[in-house]
Design a protein around this nucleic acid. Structure first.
Lengths: 254, 254
DNA sequence: TTAGGTCTGTCCACTTGTGCACACAGGACC
DNA sequence: GGTCCTGTGTGCACAAGTGGACAGACCTAA
């Protein structure tokens, strides 16, 4: 699989994960033999704290994973969402270390998987591949930093709106988010009744509608107005950092 | 500076930064020619968002740096502390990317510095050196994840206590933290008057005393009781991950 | 068709944190 | 020794979020 064969058809045959699609044909070719496409159900745990990190998971299509930090009182706290724009597992650590967080499939669907060892071996052969992953790691870091700040100062209302937009952007579903109020509350780290009240206030303003087990978005722009700008800040960094992944000449060649 | 000279004297001559001290003599020797020891004053900015990251800064002794996330309304939000246990700048990204956060010297003092390019070159020559930094990156990630969770669910009282303990641990000063109420408030992302009130309640319980511009710790154990366990969780991960940095034989050789 | 479990909407009393205001205290500098 | 500035202590009205409770709605499965 050399640069010659890198046409649109080949690119489309890749898993629908933006990080993998961003790779040059040559870099993807290094990974391709080791990539497995599998599916995972909602609530499946990819890692628990202390697990030896051996596999990188790339959410594809509407799949969504989250990082949960366990808390002394037993309830986990949700931190960041990772969808088809990225990957989870050994991104920063380069694997073979105990996981710090729990990683949970939030919305089920296809995942591309590769063993960390294979990925690291490929990185050793291709500096540009290493750079792609280092850059993505930096983006993920930005995402977490932003979440930390967001949790410190933004209201539950803002964070609810932010979360819904982030989820929709990743799943591609423009009109609904499959969550119960309970799940939304857990995810925001607030009480269920308060989460319901926030949704109710959005509903009163015509932004949302609620169904049993899912939330329907009626006015996306309204939601955006009520959200903090954290998503946008992070997205900007993603674009800036990942745009320059390959030097121009290499990208032209692809 | 080769392995032959790696005796206790040489180790003590290293900068008082635990990450650097943790390196095997051979690995440190790769960096040593490029390490500059300088000092920075409190409030000095090491990076601003968008800056090209070219230098890694290792806080030494009582120096302390923090990562600040800029907010739409202009006030920065403090996220994590980095002291002599670690380093800031290009740790995850491997440098040469725009910084996402602002990095600010919180408590002034000595910093060891090295150009990212030199560090990366050394990593290329020594896989074990690369591993040390990958492992530290993972620890830093754990720290940020924990902060995100902490901000989501812990009270200001708990976070105040946590912050004070974390600062003392890093500076080595067991009895005082040089902060005004205003600074503490900013750092926690709360209003100044509420920060004062929390300190007042600690004072009433005999845990603290307040001075103009600094906070005196009277009862460290009491502080620990009032803090959340976030520090401990992260510390455990640091120990677990950094303990195994060098395989036993290599450590013996050093 | 009914029964039972889960999800939802809402009430209430309560705690936590906000934002502003203002008096006063501690130092530094003339 | 006074002056001025910044930092500190506290009061108040208010907003945000908690946690428990309970009735009713929706869905599934027998």
């Amino acid at each position: 699989m050399d640069a010659r064969t890198s046409n649109a058809t080949e690119i489309d045959s890749r898993p629908t994960n933006n990080l993998l699609r961003r790779l040059s044909p040559a870099d993807f070719a290094l990974l391709a033999p080791h990539v497995m496409l599998e599916s995972a159900a909602a609530n499946e745990l990819l890692y628990n704290p202390g697990d030896d990190v051996q596999v990188v998971h790339f959410p594809c299509g509407p799949s969504l994973a989250t990082f949960l930090v366990p808390n002394e009182d037993g309830r986990d706290v949700e931190t960041i969402l990772v969808g088809r724009e990225g990957a989870v597992g050994g991104i920063v650590s380069e694997g073979f270390l105990p996981a710090y967080t729990r990683i949970c499939v939030k919305f089920g669907g296809p995942f591309a998987r590769i063993h960390v060892g294979k990925l690291e071996a490929a990185k050793q052969r291709s500096p540009s591949l290493r750079h792609v992953f280092a850059r993505y790691a930096d983006c993920m870091l930005a995402q977490i930093f932003q979440s930390t700040a967001c949790n410190a100062i933004h209201s539950i209302e803002q964070r609810t709106a932010k979360w819904m937009l982030a989820a929709m952007e990743r799943t591609g579903d423009e009109s609904s988010v499959p969550l119960t109020h309970e799940q939304l509350a857990t995810l925001l780290g607030v009480g269920r009744s308060y989460a319901s009240r926030v949704l109710q206030s959005f509903k009163a303003e015509g932004v949302l509608d609620t169904r049993r087990g899912s939330i329907l978005v009626r006015n996306r722009e309204g939601l955006r107005l009520r959200a903090c700008m954290c998503n946008e800040a992070v997205k900007l960094h993603f674009e800036e950092v990942l745009r320059g992944v390959y030097p121009t000449e290499e990208r032209q060649a692809g």
